Amino acid sequence: MELTAVTLIVAFAGVFLICFMKGAFGGGFAIVGIPILSLVMDPITAGGLLAPLFVAMDVYSLRYWKPSTWSRPDLFRLVPGLVLGIGVGFLLFRVLDHRAIAIVMAAVTLVFVGLWFRAGGEVKVQPRSSGKAVAAGITSGITTMVAHSGGPPLAIYLLPLGLSKQVYAGTTSMFFTVGNLLKAGPWLLLARPTGNVLSLTGVCLLAVPCGVWLGWRLHTRLDQRQMYRACYGLLVVTALKLLWDGISGYLG
């Protein structure tokens, strides 16, 4: 990968968008910024670039998503599955059909959002389920490891709980803080970034403070209903991106 001005600008823009999503919604929408990065690098290189940047975003975000914004009962249910899912994703990274995973995850997400809109687009609180939490954690772990798309499974579990916007974002942020710390090592082993990639990582670090802060500013301006509608809308965008990745992978 050549470190040209275009590469610097495009990569910085992609990382900035991911940071913005982290500040506004707690994370889980990294895949929204992946298309920008894919303009100048392959997916494996992007994974190696993002692995340490995710950790930097998470650490910086702790100044906004403090422990008071975490739903501990849900994290206790979700995190064990997340750990298992990341381990499975790493072990099977070379043999898993990423295209099929993307298509299935897109279909499930679109059905989930479609049912929400069909019900009137209102938050109807559902009881917690340890089984659903474990399934969401495992699925999120696998998809975040193989495709940086762990957001939809987590959102499918958390959104029906009707958490306050701060607790939803804080819980999401802490969940992915754990996940990104766990997958940083495996991704660095898979990508083995050197030279220009490491230099580009250093440049993109500058996007973290301003991106997260601007996202957090948006979060403070959204009311509860707007926050949930934005999350469901972003799930549609994420699902369509996953669907495109999966289908184009087969056609290509």
Results as ranks from 00 to 15, higher is better:
E2I: 15
T4Q: 14
T7P: 11
F12D: 13
A13D: 09
A13V: 09
G14H: 08
V15Y: 08
F16E: 03
L17E: 04
C19S: 10
G23K: 04
A24H: 06
F25W: 10
F29K: 00
A30Y: 12
I31T: 07
I31A: 05
V32M: 06
G33I: 09
L37C: 04
S38N: 12
S38I: 15
M41N: 05
D42L: 07
I44D: 04
A46W: 02
G47Y: 07
G47I: 02
G48R: 02
A51E: 10
P52H: 09
M57N: 12
D58Q: 07
Y60P: 06
S61Y: 12
L62S: 10
L62H: 12
Y64I: 04
Y64M: 03
W65Q: 09
T69R: 08
D74Y: 09
L75K: 07
L75N: 07
R77Q: 08
V79C: 11
V79Q: 09
L82W: 02
L92M: 15
R94F: 07
R94S: 13
V95T: 13
L96H: 04
H98E: 15
R99G: 10
I101A: 14
I103D: 07
A107D: 05
V108A: 09
V108R: 02
T109F: 01
F112I: 03
V113Q: 00
G114Q: 02
R118L: 10
R118Y: 09
G120W: 09
K124G: 03
R128G: 00
R128L: 01
G131Q: 01
A133F: 02
A135F: 01
A135L: 05
G137F: 05
I138H: 00
T139I: 07
I142H: 00
T143R: 06
T144N: 05
T144V: 08
M145N: 08
A147P: 15
S149F: 11
S149L: 12
G151Q: 03
P153I: 00
I156R: 15
Y157H: 08
Y157N: 02
L159A: 05
L161T: 02
G162Q: 03
G162H: 03
F175A: 06
N180Y: 14
A184R: 11
G185A: 14
P186F: 04
W187E: 15
L188P: 01
L188F: 02
L188C: 01
L189Y: 06
P193E: 04
P193N: 00
G195Q: 03
N196A: 14
V197E: 07
L198H: 14
S199L: 15
S199A: 15
V203T: 13
L205P: 07
L206G: 08
L206K: 07
L206V: 15
P209I: 07
C210I: 11
W213Y: 14
W213R: 15
W216T: 13
L218T: 09
T220S: 12
D223K: 06
R229I: 09
C231K: 13
A239N: 00
K241Q: 13
L242P: 05
S248V: 08
S248C: 07
G249F: 08
L251A: 14
